[in-house]
Structures are given as C-alpha cells and as structure tokens.
Design a binder for these strands. Structure first.
Lengths: 255, 255
DNA sequence: CCGACGGAGGGAACTGAGTGCCATCGGTGT
DNA sequence: ACACCGATGGCACTCAGTTCCCTCCGTCGG
C-alpha cells in the first residue's frame, strides 16, 4: 500500500518539465530556449528543474539513465553459458527497445540532436557510458586471454557503432520500417567479424528477455513475423572472416 | 617580406595562455581554475582568451584541430592503390604521432582528463570527429558495396577503439615504452578482423612527418612517479551515489 | 608631417547555466 | 497543537561565454 507501487512513484513534475521543454525546443529551438522559459511554461520554480535534471541537456535524454541501469543489470545477470559477443549484442538491443518505445519522441529528439552541436556532444557522453558498460562486461569475460582488454574495447566499440548505424537509419526514416531487423543485420556483421563461432542462429533472438517488464507498457506493433531478411551466418573462427562477409554481401545485394 | 612567414605567425599569446592554464590546472585543478585566473597569470585581458580558444576546454587540447586537419588531408591524398582499412589505420597513427611529440604534456593532459568529467566529455567530441573523418573516407571507398556505410562506421569505430586502447596504455605508463609498437599490435587486431587480407608488413610506415614543436617551452614539473594505489576522485558535493561510483570506476579504468 | 585606416588587444556590461542557502508549505507522527 | 519531515519556491551568487566599444600601434596615402 505504499504510495504508488514501491519506489517508482513517477513524479508528474518530471514529465511536465520534459513536455514543456520539448514543446519549446521544437517550436523555437534548443539554444533559443532558456531554462527559465521551460519552468515558466511548466509552472514550476526554476530551482526544481535542476532538482530533476542535473543540466539543461539532460532533459533531452530523460530515460537514458534508466536504460543504462537496465543494461548494466542485464549484463550483470549473465552467466558463463552466454557467448560474450552475442551477449553484448543483446544488451545493445535494449537501447533500441527504449528508442522504439516512443518512436515519435525518439525521432524528434534525433532531429534535435542532429542540429545542435551541444546536444550531440552530450549524446556522445551518453553513448560512451553504454560502450563502457559493454566493454567492462567483455573485459570480465576475457580475463586471461592475451589481449583481453584490447578485444573488449574494440568489440564494444564495434557493437555500439553497428547499433547506432542501424538506429540512425531507422530514425532518419521517421521511425518507419522495422528497426529490430536492421539492428539484427548490423549486429550480425559484428558477430561475424568477431567471436560467435558456431552458434547457428545468430539473429532472431527475439531480444533479451531481461526477466522483468523493464518496459511495462509498449504500445508497439507486434513486430514478430520477421521478414526473412535474416541471414544465418556460419563461419569458422580462424577462417578469413572478411571474405565470408564479402560473399554474404554479394549474395544479399547486388543480386 | 610579409610580417612573419606568411599566415603562420605563431602568436606567443596562445602559448602563454596554454602554459599559464596548465600550470594552474595542475596545481589547483581544472574546475578550481577560472578563466580569469588564467588570464591574470598570463598577464593578458580576459577577452583575449576567448579570441584564441572558443571555450575553456579547448585550451586543454590546443593541437587537435591541426591534427584533425592533417588526418583529413592525409585521407584526401589517398588513392585507389591504398587498401582502405590499412589506410585508416595509418591515419590513426597520425594521432599517436601528435601525442608522442610531447610525451610529458600528453601524460599530464591524460591525467587531467581522467579526473575531470567535463574534459572527458570534451575529449569524446574530439575523438568523435576523428572517427567521423575515418568513417567518411571509408564510406567513399565502400560506395557500391551492399553495407558500405555500416562497414565504414564499424571499422572506423574499431580502429579508433584499438588506437585509443593502445594510446591509453602508453599514457598510463607515463610515456615509457614504445607507443607505436603497441598501437601497431592493436591495429593489427582490427586489420585481422576486417579487411586487409594478406599484405604482410602492416606497420612501420613512419607516416607523414607532420611533426613540429607545438609546445616549444613548457616549464612543467616532472610529476612522474605517481602513487598508483591512491585514487583521487573529484566529485560534486551533492552528487548522487551512483555517479560517484561511476567516477571511481572510470578513474581506475579497471585495467 | 599628418590624418585615415585597420587589426590586435583591453575592458565593461550583459546573458544564461548551474549552485547554495533559506523560507515556505503540506503531510505525518506524537 | 507541535515537531518533524520531504518537496518546492525564491533569491543571490559564481562563472563561462558574448557583445559592444574603447585604446593602442603600425601602415599607408596625401
């Protein structure tokens, strides 16, 4: 019987600030909007804004903190049975899920960050924290290997880059199309380049059952019924991977 | 007969500002040093600081602009005879060269950016621009390939990650040892994972003699031999706990 | 010789983000 | 009613960054 379901009270003030901020950002631009404008529209005190958001930039990414925590928890809940590269790919899909939760919001934010250098810089620091989380996990899994730390850093960077490439392409298309297939394809490339030796089906993992409705209400379309663009990549570890990839490319496109 | 050798007059003011800034940053910390402190020590007007550096952060990375221009020129001067992945690896080595130009300066800056979150965020935006330059070049080389853009982004990210891994390891060792060997090894991993099929000797291209004494005279104290056991965590007073923990993790680097 | 001109630098004043401190308000336990 | 919270509002302050205008100084054309 606690207030509202345990510790997740969902303060209306936070949402009001985000809504007010985005209204102003979209209609007059980010830099042309002061914090005073936001709090005036939201009808709250200026001091309260900085109680909910440590900086003006944070109001643009209101849910990344939670998503990062989810990802960390997801990775921490991993076991030795999980193939490391595949695991970080699944972790990356969590980020995609968050974006897909609210397509219109994500698209608007994307257009905003594309225009404002300051926001792009801030987004970089956010992405960097995701990358660090992935790399830390991989470092843990790679302890003992000769170049464990190096491999962890490189693979984490590759996973993030692939994910972002697919995500941006989805955002650029105004949220149309199936984002998860695109991301699966991009991550498949990374998995083919690095680890994930035999493990037949690399794609179509119906993404990360993180054991908890991390995202309770998703007004998303089912998104099942994968159009079988999905390619199963099977390659030997020592094989010249770049050549395998090239062959797949030839097969897919360029038909 | 023009004033002083064409357009590269090398203003002493800029160097004086960098020197004054680093003296203060090292002895009292970055955030504890105001721009007014710097200009007071340099004996110039406050307005002049912002004529030479667009922001306070820029004074910490005074040569990255030039290095980025060098890299862009290096990539633009490429021909079809260059293997793309190998080419971007060579381009990345340019950055290492810049760091190696002034080891003590680089090491001190590294310790500074490791401690100050704001500087790390700024560094990310700098690194991002290098990565974009590499990715743009690869996109140009990959036009026509099925997943050209995706591959370009992923490979660029991997190259940057590998380079930074080696660079950080070199910086952590206070500039001891051979940096280029480490970087060659790291980039070799990326080349083995992606393109660069046979081509035996990948390294030792002794690329691009862009070297010039950027910092002619910096009277910096030795500041070597730092007790690596002690970790200094600088954090805001009211900061939430998770952020403090995060900073500690980042400070340690968990290597 | 002199005034016009232009660029480099100095400096006051302003905007806006972020912070510290304290007063206020509303609910809760005693 | 009173004391004790946590959430909020309001005020003042610091500092980064910008705008505007001033001075200084060397050069050029008369």
């Amino acid at each position: 019987m606690s207030a509202t379901h345990k510790a997740e009270a969902k303060p209306p003030m936070r949402d009001a600030l985000v809504a007010a901020a985005f209204r102003l950002f979209l209609e007059r631009g980010y830099e042309q909007t002061t914090v005073d404008d936001i709090v005036a529209l939201a009808g709250v005190g200026r001091r309260s804004f900085f109680r909910y958001f440590p900086s003006k930039e944070d109001v643009v990414f209101p849910d990344h903190e939670r998503c990062l925590a989810d990802m960390t928890a997801f990775l921490a809940a991993s076991g030795k049975e999980h193939e490391p590269v595949r695991r970080v790919c699944d972790a990356a899909r969590l980020v995609l899920l968050m974006y897909a939760e609210n397509p219109s919001f994500s698209v608007q934010r994307y257009r905003l960050t594309k225009q404002v250098p300051g926001l792009r810089a801030y987004e970089l620091s956010v992405v960097w924290r995701y990358e660090r989380a992935l790399a830390e996990y991989l470092r843990g899994r790679f302890t003992g290997r000769p170049d464990g730390n190096l491999h962890a850093d490189v693979i984490a960077a590759a996973v993030v880059a692939a994910h972002n490439n697919a995500l941006r392409s989805w955002l650029r298309s105004a949220g149309q199309g199936d984002a998860s297939t695109t991301v699966d394809h991009a991550l498949g490339y990374v998995q083919s380049a690095f680890g994930a030796p035999p493990t037949a089906s690399t794609a179509s993992t119906s993404t990360a059952a993180t054991a908890r409705p991390v995202f309770p209400s998703l007004p998303m379309p089912p998104a099942d019924e994968m159009p079988d663009d999905v390619v199963e990549v099977v390659s030997r570890r020592g094989a010249p991977l770049w050549r395998v990839v090239q062959e797949i490319e030839m097969t897919l496109g360029r038909d």
